[in-house]
């Protein structure tokens, strides 16, 4: 489904990724490991067309990620970055903005569905009136997760999405993603809960190979 072929990437002359190749098949749950700066987040940026590889290519469903294909590929991936950059303003306005995008007109963003999701991730009913700037780190992470689920996509790129959550909520999030067999996801996380399920695979970027 997603193939990274001989990827090389440098920022300002500094090599970040050197000759990495691996494939993630549909339905696979993958944890990316490696120390800080080993290029884990850059792999997501490459697949979403935010940066271009120095060498090599990324393919999604057999299609090379480039300036023509990337616009459709982005519509198939739900992405959460480690800073949870969901913008600012009222939460309800953010929901309206997302459902107002042309690519998302088919989405079910009805109050009932949103409410169920918000409730599952333990938000108060009146969260829509709150400003994103007033949310705690953990609330922002849960909000980004709610949005990623609302997008009804089957592929998830999750970059440190549980780091600010307590144990109970971490478990809830991990369980939510694990129970969906049809979902493919790549996770960057130091949270051991993601590794509890035996089906989870681990790719180490420093060694450039599968280690689990």
């Amino acid at each position: 489904m997603i193939k990274f072929n001989n990827i090389h990437l440098s920022y300002d002359g500094k090599k970040v990724i050197e000759d990495i190749s691996f494939e993630v098949k549909q339905g696979e749950k993958v944890v990316l490991s490696g120390k800080s700066g080993s290029g884990k987040s850059s792999l997501f940026a490459l697949a979403l067309g935010f940066v271009e590889p120095g060498e090599g290519e990324v393919t999604f469903e057999g299609v090379r990620v480039d300036e023509n294909s990337v616009w459709d590929i982005r519509k198939k991936i739900a992405y959460i970055d480690q800073d949870v950059s969901v913008g600012d303003g009222k939460i309800q306005d953010l929901f309206d903005f997302i459902s107002g995008l042309k690519a998302n007109v088919h989405l079910d963003c009805t109050k009932g569905k949103v409410r169920d999701l918000l409730r599952y991730f333990e938000f108060n009913e009146d969260i829509g009136d709150k400003n994103i700037e007033d949310l705690s780190g953990g609330e922002r992470q849960r909000l980004a997760i709610v949005i990623s689920v609302l997008l009804e996509r089957n592929v998830f790129f999750l970059d440190e999405v549980t780091s600010a959550l307590d144990k109970h909520l971490k478990k809830k999030v991990v369980d939510y993603f694990m129970k969906r067999e049809d979902w493919t996801f790549l996770v960057i996380s130091h949270e051991p809960l993601w590794l509890e399920d035996p089906s989870v695979k681990v790719f180490d970027l420093e060694e450039g190979k599968w280690i689990l």
């Binding site: 979403l48 950059s85 042309k102 690519a103």
Partner: peptide, 18 residues
């Protein structure tokens, strides 16, 4: 300043203009 939120909006499926 908003590089990341802007990229996030692109990842949501927005066109460049949106």
């Amino acid at each position: 300043k908003d590089t990341k939120p802007y990229l996030y909006v692109l990842s949501l499926g927005a066109s460049r203009f949106e």
